[in-house]
Design a protein around this nucleic acid. Structure first.
Lengths: 160, 160
DNA sequence: GGTTGATATGTTATACTATAACACTTCGTG
DNA sequence: CACGAAGTGTTATAGTATAACATATCAACC
């Protein structure tokens, strides 16, 4: 591994961040009676290694170099499992996936996507505009997608 | 045209809704010195006719039956133009497009997507969780994607 | 021990979504 | 009338995703 990537937009102890997330996923699977198989584990690990969002085919390419699967369904199935279990989030805007920053808590995630460096930071959603509109129209919300695109603090500097 | 589709989730005068939106687009193009060509006009009309989100290839199929273009770039270019001008919004969750419900005002749109009937209602976004997170991290928001999936009032009934 | 069923992976093929690149037309302007 | 800008037509291809079926593994049960 090279330099630790930023999480959120700040430096952090990336090694412990990765191992903590893997341990949390491991424990959650055990508690739920689910299998945390090598493909699933490695897929999560690949996403944890960078805090950028990776496309399914990027993940697949890395799995492939390690002999863990070379065909799209392998990657898509592992990603679907991880998303279902809340260890990974899908970024609709990018058709990509990113490791969850808070796998231990239930949450409606929101994301800030830097168009400069590609880093994706996870925030806690607050349901802003939608909660009100949903209530007045009687719409029953089951899932939300909240994503903002823009520039992170680091990438704002060059523009100035 | 058959029954008017719901806008938001309520019945409305669909004919006037369509013609008003077309007139608004026409006026906006004139004001901005842009061409509201037959392909562009008909593409917007197709989206206005239903308040469901249509995929680019659905739009293309309908353009094709009318001799207005049969190849993907035709539809994608018209849709890109309409999105740029704010007459149409892209629904990331569905890889689909929907006519704007308020083409006259600047707005950050938010959407409620019914997984029962496919209707997409547009609401005004309020930037909920993201504004706070963005400010504390220094992230500069340029665009937001806010989409909720769930059940509209009508589609909640059968489930009960 | 063998059978059965559940879960996961491997593989083929294909569907769906999107854009690059280039040719042609149209039209306004100098 | 030459030129350039904008739009459309077309070919080809890139990128994203899933259906369907084959194989493997393993636990539970008889």
């Amino acid at each position: 591994m090279t330099d630790p990537a930023p999480k959120g937009f700040e430096a952090h102890d990336h090694n412990s961040c990765v191992s903590a997330a893997l341990a949390a996923a491991d424990a959650a699977c055990a508690a739920r009676g689910l299998q945390f198989t090598p493909v699933r584990r490695r897929t999560l690990e690949i996403l944890l290694e960078s805090h950028e969002a990776l496309g399914a085919y990027d993940v697949l390419a890395r799995l492939n170099t390690e002999g863990l699967g070379s065909k799209p369904p392998v990657a898509y199935r592992a990603l679907a499992f991880l998303v279902e279990q809340g260890f990974v989030h899908r970024i609709e805007r990018l058709n990509a996936f990113v490791a969850c920053a808070h796998p231990d808590q239930e949450h409606d995630p929101a994301f800030m996507i830097c168009r400069g460096c590609g880093t994706v930071a996870e925030a806690q959603a607050v349901q802003g505009g939608l909660a009100v509109s949903a209530q007045t129209t009687g719409f029953q919300i089951e899932q939300t997608v909240i994503e903002a695109e823009g520039l992170c603090p680091t990438c704002q500097a060059p523009a100035a």
